[in-house]
Amino acid sequence: MRQALTIAGSDSGGGAGIQADLKSFAAAGVYGTSVITSVTSQNTQGVTDIFNLPLDSIESQIDAIFADFDISCVKTGMLSTAEIIQAVSDRLQNYNVKKLVVDPVMVAKGGSRLLEKNAVNTLVESLIPQAYIITPNIEEGEFLLNCKINNEEDMRKAAKELMRMGSEFVLLKGGHLKSRYAKDILVGTNVELSFSAEKIGSKNTHGTGCTYASSIAAYLAKGFDIDKAVQTAKNYIYEAISSSRNLRIGSGHGPLNHFFYTRSFDSAD
């Protein structure tokens, strides 16, 4: 069984972060390991508290994983401070990680900031250049480039500009654009592809970005080429959102149905 690692924050509500990543790994048939960077007090309505773990704890978790597991792909999510980003970056460089998926998590679904403003430069200078692929959404792309992205053509230009930061591939996610379809743009050297799916009317979208990125990481761990990994993850995220529409978990932005192909959500009723 292929093994993958997620380095991210813990979501006590279980819909995003480490919890969503491990569910996505499992759904893809990949064994998931984890390094927790921050503990959030969180539910479907928002984040009420964030506790960042000490750097030596984060570093020792990473060391423990690489001392024992054969990690085929690493995915990073919430890395809230410049110091945490630098520590993670240095450790991954030390272990010569080849397949790194960087999801530049900045803001939670409820609007809480998950990345300190002074940490952005460290993300751009230290971690993104190591990435095999980065997976920003429109808002994150706008923040990283200090520009507005209003349409698909803007997305293509922005994705190519984001590549200048050093990653091998960029997947710019277009779900925030006003459109009937959620279209994502993948660019790389001699690669420019789009992936489209009809938008689904549902408030249960908490953890969508985490799930998408970790699903890509899982399929990269299994040896898929980048285009097949993204397309398979796109199909998975569509079904996970679609099948969650009638779930009643929490009173805010509910989670996805990560295991939509099982009967785990059926009740005795």
Rank of each mutant, 00 (worst) to 15 (best):
M163D: 11
A213I: 10
V191T: 15
E161M: 14
G207S: 14
G175V: 03
G207M: 11
A131C: 10
E125M: 14
A182H: 10
E152L: 11
L172R: 08
K157C: 06
I216G: 05
K109Y: 09
G111T: 08
Y132E: 09
F224E: 08
E153A: 15
G141F: 03
D154Y: 05
C210E: 09
N150G: 05
H206N: 07
C210L: 12
E192N: 10
E192T: 08
K173R: 07
L127W: 15
F143C: 15
V124K: 14
A158K: 08
L171I: 02
M106F: 04
T122N: 05
K148F: 05
G166E: 01
V124S: 11
N150L: 03
V187K: 03
S126R: 13
I226R: 00
N235G: 11
R113W: 05
A159M: 05
Y212C: 04
T135Q: 02
K109W: 11
V107W: 06
G188W: 00
D154H: 03
I216M: 08
E139L: 06
G207C: 07
A158N: 08
G223I: 03
R164Q: 15
I133L: 02
G141K: 02
I226T: 04
A131N: 09
K222L: 08
V124M: 12
G207K: 15
K173W: 03
E139S: 13
G223L: 14
V107C: 04
V105C: 11
